[in-house]
Amino acid sequence: MEAAPLATGAGPRRRAWELLLALPLAVVFAAFLLYPILTILLTSLKPGSGVLHSGGGGSSSHTIFSNYLELFRDPIYCEAMLHSLVLSASVALGATLLCLGPAWLFARYEFPGKRLMRAGFALPMSLSGILVGFLAVIMLGRVGFIPQMSQGLTGKAWLSGAAYQLSGLVIAYLYFEIPRGVVTLESALSKFDPRLDAAARSLGASRWQRFLWIVLPLIAPALVATFAVTFSVSLGSFGVALVLSKRFSVLPLELFHQVVAITNFPLASAMAVFLIALALALNFALGRWMRRHFSLRHA
């Protein structure tokens, strides 16, 4: 029998060996997360070994950052990077705005069929990118469902081959980002206290005044978080582009190309480091911003 300290029970007499239960977890992540990240970090500093693409620097004038220099100098990679950023930003913006409706509905109302609807929205989120890419092809490809249907109904094949164009890429990305946005935003919106809205009503605020002055400022963090999450996922998404993208290259696809076709591992590693750094920076900035925001509001 041991004495039970009241309050928490987190006394100094607790068993130290219990911590060993977390050891396998630590080992897995050290071996398969930290070690690989360290590896690509080191590889990215080695001279490029591409068989096709020698890039701007060339191996003779190699400095440790030459892969990164090449990444930011070569117009092809710059374009892919720009595409990635623009595509992700527009998809994130679109997803955040579009999912506001469903998220608000799910957070504030109860109605029959709600669970089925939510389950439906959760579905695309858990599909791998290639599958979403295939869905885009089957709907919007050259012989996709929508062009075929519209051909049959109106005689004109609408949206034929859209899947392979920028618009198809945007739609496919939105397809799996909207559900993600709904989930992220819904959990934040359900924390919004409806009494604040009631208070504003009793003070005479119209619907628009309430939305602009009360609801919007209070859900702003959730909107920012949703934007950040969807942006960051789009940035790293690879499967959709792999299936759909014919001419329009994005950075993850370029990375894949470097590995599989050219086997330029150092350059591919530099790209991977860039993508990881971008994701980490975004994550960190968001975390800081949220913390500051919350310490201001809910101290």
Binding site: F29, I40, L255, F265, A272, L280
Partner: peptide, 30 residues
């Protein structure tokens, strides 16, 4: 509570916010 607890937690949750293709390349090489 133990030293490094927060670090371990953030490392464990890290893959959820990292691009899969980048990590795949890492594992492939490591």
């Amino acid at each position: 509570q133990f030293p490094g607890r927060d670090l371990l937690e953030s490392i464990v949750l890290l893959p959820l916010s990292l691009p899969g293709i980048a990590l795949s390349i890492g594992i492939l090489q490591a």
